[in-house]
Every structure is written in structure tokens, then in C-alpha cells.
Design a protein around this nucleic acid. Sequence first.
DNA 1: GTCTATAACGAGATAGAC
DNA 2: GTCTATCTCGTTATAGAC
Lengths: 228, 228
Amino acid sequence: MSTAQGARARARQEVTAAIKEAARRQLAAEGAAKLSLRAVARELGMVSSAVYRYFPSRDDLLTALITDAYDSLGAAAEKARDAAGDAPPTDRWAAVAEAVRGWALAHPHEYALIYGSPVPGYSAPETTVPAAARVGLVFIGILRDAHQDRGLAEPSLPAELRPEAERMAADLAPELPPQVVAALIAAWAQLFGLVSFELFGQFTNVVEDRAAFFRHAAARLAEGVGLR
Amino acid sequence: MSTAQGARARARQEVTAAIKEAARRQLAAEGAAKLSLRAVARELGMVSSAVYRYFPSRDDLLTALITDAYDSLGAAAEKARDAAGDAPPTDRWAAVAEAVRGWALAHPHEYALIYGSPVPGYSAPETTVPAAARVGLVFIGILRDAHQDRGLAEPSLPAELRPEAERMAADLAPELPPQVVAALIAAWAQLFGLVSFELFGQFTNVVEDRAAFFRHAAARLAEGVGLR
DNA sequence: GTCTATAACGAGATAGAC
DNA sequence: GTCTATCTCGTTATAGAC
């Protein structure tokens, strides 16, 4: 009985994976806006109603793809952090930043799905938050270590932003100085700005050696959050 | 005769504008991927083939929307620069940055069109380059003035990036030191990273006072390019 | 010459009956 | 789960009004 259930569960997982894989192919070919359960079903030789046994709606399939993308990026960042071992924090920062860029270049359509234009008519549920937070937590961890071990330079912060920074720090990283947390959020957005510009074509005819350019910009961002 | 031509030309311009307006509405409602000439024609009470007198293809209509969006943003940036008069360069930088953010918040779908995910199956022609360059040129102008008047701090630059920076400077702003140009390109991408994160929802539950947060981050970016 | 309208093609999506 | 009738789309050919 448990064997039967195990087989059933395994089969279900395999079909679920196949559906998501086909959906990702569609994402690449047509974009998230045109993702359709019917097309996915057709590609798998299933009938559209059968797909609804696995994903109750198109939006649920989209949500699964988004969560998977965030998790995949988060895993890549964590792997880079772990591979950097106990290297100096600036090196670990650089390694994770490179991993983010590398993942984005390897998965451009999934990157566009999570960091590009919102999908019209779709709003991501709160369910996606933990997966989305993973990359950010990796950066926070590096700063936390640096803060304990070697100390961090504390970035400047105007009085106007003090309450906001304290709120953010309380929410995200109570162990870090509020100035550092505020600077980190900004650096986080800016880092992804670099990746998005490269991926979305804004660097065409502007930046040629993009790897070197990104490496340097990411290193300067590390300085900006107080790493040294 | 010239009156008749003028009337015809005016009529043509009006229809062209109406088509683009309807297309922008569709952009907001359905996204660029689903922009359809037929739906635009229907909304205007035209027949689809008539639209082809104004735009030879769907992609040409998209290109026109993209160019218009870049021009609209560029005009907003230029207006902010002009309104800032001869204020100190850091203030002018801040004014233009605010204008970029303000334009993006006021035109989220057009922002997504030009700085968000690429439209599947569409590749922007070279024609869009001049319009796309306008915002960047405003920032370059501010730095040029600052360089002449007060001098700029020269950002650091690793030897590895020296050739790239010199190439970029030669292409974009020969009158500026290569280090400044390289830093400016990075700041440009990072500034739009901040705007994109806010607009695309990454700051949800993270940053509350987004105006103040942006203001401070933009000011720090100005420091990063050497303004003081 | 400039425009609009009709009709059609091939391809694909969709809704509903069965 | 299958089939069909009816939509959508981009695009073109053609004909006629101004």
C-alpha cells in the first residue's frame, strides 16, 4: 500500500515536473503573458483538463514557476557563498554577485519572469516571499559575518531616512546597524539593475567587456555597504 | 494646394496619434506581448487593414511606442535639468534622477516597455537608439559642466577596465575622464535598478518611504561618479 | 496619390456539445 | 477525453471613394 502510494506520489511529481518544464519552454518562446495551460498540455500530449489536476489555474502554474526561479537563483547564490568558504567578506560578496549574474545569463527568461515587467493581470501571492528572500539573505549573512569578525564601516544616512532604516533593520536584520541595512537594500536593487541592463539589452553598443564591468561595479557596491 | 496637403498631413497625424494612444491603452491592459493591430483598429472603429496605412506592421507600431516612451522620458529629464538652472551639479543630478523616477511612476507600462523584459519575438531596431540615449545625455551634460566648472573627483578604476573605459569615453563623452564615464554607466544602470525594483514590486514589504529612500540612494550615486 | 473597406489565407486559440 | 464550430491574430490582394 505504501509502495503504491509512493509510486503514485512519484508519478505525480514526474508529471508536475514535466508540466513545469514545458511551461518554462513556453516562457522562453512566448513570454509569461502568453503562458497557456492548453499549449502546455498540447506539448505534453495531455488534454487541457488533465493539467488542472496538477495546477488549479494558469496563475498557480505561474506562481510555481516564479517560486522555482527564485529558489534556483537562491540556491546558486548559496552555493557560491559556500564555495567561497571563509574568504574575506569582499571576496564572498563578489562571488555571490557573480553567481547572481551567472544565473541570470544562464536563465534569462526566468530572470525576466521574476525581475522583469510584471505579468499583466497577475499578482504574485505571499507564498513566493520566502523563495524571493533567499538571495537577499545570503548578502545579509555575509554582512553579518563581517560585522562580527572585522567590523563594518558604517555608511552615511541622513536623519530623514533614520526611521525607515530602523524599521527595515528590525524587519530584515536586527543584528546589523540600520545604516548598513539601508545601504544593503539600495545595493541589492542596484546590483540587479546592472544585471537587468545587461540582460535586457541596454548595454548593447555601450558596454563591451560586461563581465569585467560587472565585477568592478559589484566590488564598488560592496564598499558602499561598508565592506572593506 | 498647400492647404489641402496641410489638412491631409494633419489628419494623418491625428489618426497616427489616435492609433498610438489606443495601443498604449492596450499596452497597459494586456502587455506588450499581446499588443494587436486588430484590437487597436477595433477600438478606433477602423478596419485592421486601414491601420497598415499608418504602421506597416505590428512591430513598427511597437517601435513607435518604444521611441515615444524614450522620448517622453528624455523630455522629462531635460525639463528637470533646465528647471534646475545653474544649481550645483549634485542638485541638478538629484533633480534629473527624481524626474526619471517620477516619469516611471506616472507611466509604469511605458517604463516596463523600455526597461522591462524584452518582448518575445521582437528586437528593437537601431532607430530607437537616439531616443534611448536622451536620458543618458542629460546625465553626461551635468558631469561635463561639473568637470569644467568645479572639477570632478575621479573614481577609482582597475587597470583591467582601463581599455573598456577609454572606449566608452571615446564613444559617449570624449570630454570626460574615462573613469568618470565608466562610473557613470554603472550609476545609470544602478539608478534604473532602484526605479525598476520599486515599480516592479520588489520593494513591497521592504521599503516604505520610497521617495526618501530613492532620494538618498540617488545622491550617493552622484558621489560615486565624482560629483561633490 | 491617399485612404478605407471587403475579403481572404493560414495559423492558432477557445467554448461547448457530445 | 474528443470534436467541432467559432473566435482571434497578422498580413495581403483587390477594389473603389475622395
